[in-house]
């Protein structure tokens, strides 16, 4: 009798305590399958563990960073999912907090390569890599390395499609930095790279896509045969019914394209707990299997066919993100004046 009432009292206290502290935090996510995996693998375990609620806003990083910058004292977002270039803006404008193992114990499981490019203001949570996607019936012998691919456009071996400058933040890394790196040109010497692009364009064997999905439309409608694309997107498309599509990383390797998470300055401290749950082995495993992207917790094990498809972060090439953001205005301007005509 006595124990029962004690248990009852304890449970009342516990539930009262929980409800007193139950909090609603605001987190962001990319849309579609990405968001559904995010809810299932990250939000659900967090809510189960803490009794809190995490509200998800789908959208794009530039909208979130502006929303936070407009309300820095009382930001509408607590945990920010981001891309590399807008993450750099958030760091530069002082919109996010530095992240340490004290606040996020699971950060110890994340290799330093994933936090260093962010100077400790957040971490990569999953990544893809750019390579070449092509239609097997039209390109029987795809080029083995990147430079051969670009030269093949000029030689007229195939019609290629490349991401246009307006497709967004990944073009500068997957196309422009890639060319600078292959040609061994310093990032602020744009002439040689732009000349190369103009030569490709003038050959008549090059089209651009200015929207991620336009690439798939172009390959299917015969507008192009081969082109730069991202692994996860290509595999999803192939598995989804574009049978003739194949994907690989030409030498010297694919180019990483990371998704990032950051805790917003002046946002709820519950954000740290959310990030900690997100980085746990079980959450990360769940997420990688749902969306087909490699994740960052080093204990995660990938099943097939994921295991043979996903690259190691050591095999992909890491662009000089900081260097790129410095020369971006110049790159865009030069592109407009040469390739963009």
């Amino acid at each position: 009798m006595k124990t029962r009432s004690l248990l009852l009292a304890m449970s009342i206290v516990a539930s009262a305590g929980a409800s007193a502290h139950a909090e609603t935090i605001s987190v962001t996510a990319f849309g579609g399958a990405w968001e559904q995996a995010f809810r299932e693998c990250y939000v659900a375990p967090y809510e189960a563990a803490t009794g809190n609620t995490a509200e998800v806003t789908v959208g794009s990083p530039s909208q979130w960073v502006n929303q936070i910058a407009a309300n820095p004292q009382d930001p509408p977002i607590d945990v920010l999912v981001n891309l590399m270039d807008t993450a750099a803006v958030a760091i530069k404008d002082g919109l996010v907090d530095p992240m340490t193992v004290e606040q996020v114990p699971n950060l110890a499981k994340v290799p330093a390569a994933f936090t260093e490019p962010l100077q400790g203001y957040g971490t990569v949570i999953n990544f893809g890599a750019a390579g070449l996607g092509y239609m097997t019936d039209r390109v029987p012998n795809p080029p083995a390395d990147w430079m051969a691919f670009f030269d093949g456009i000029i030689a007229g071996d195939y019609v290629a499609t490349l991401p246009g400058i307006n497709v967004g933040s990944t073009t500068p890394t997957a196309l422009l930095w890639n060319l600078f790196d292959l040609m061994g040109v310093p990032l602020d010497k744009t002439d040689a790279v732009m000349e190369k692009l103009v030569a490709m364009k003038d050959s008549g064997n090059l089209v651009f896509y200015n929207d991620m999905n336009q690439y798939l439309t172009q390959l299917q409608s015969g507008e192009a045969d081969i082109g730069i694309y991202w692994d996860g997107r290509a595999w999803t498309a192939k598995d989804g019914g574009i049978d003739k599509l194949n994907f690989y990383y030409p030498q010297p390797g694919g180019i990483i394209s990371p998704s990032v998470i950051q805790k917003v300055k002046n946002g709820s401290d519950e954000g740290w707990n959310f990030i900690n749950v997100l980085l746990s082995k079980s959450s990360q495993e769940c997420f990688s299997q749902k969306v087909g992207y490699p994740v960052v917790n080093q204990d995660v094990v990938y099943p097939e066919p994921l295991a043979s498809r996903v690259p190691s972060y050591k095999d992909v090439r890491w662009p000089d993100f900081a260097g790129i953001s410095k020369v971006m205005p110049e790159w865009v301007d030069q592109w407009n004046r040469t390739v963009g005509r």
Binding site: D85, G164, N166, G168, S169, P172, D211, Q214, P329, V332
Partner: peptide, 25 residues
């Protein structure tokens, strides 16, 4: 202008859009 014409028609709103998504100026 962004999605059709293979980038052959560059107008001022397109340059404004670039400033937002790429240059942050």
């Amino acid at each position: 202008m962004l999605l059709l014409g293979n980038g052959s028609v560059v107008t001022l709103p397109l340059l404004i859009y670039q400033q937002f998504i790429l240059v942050n100026d």
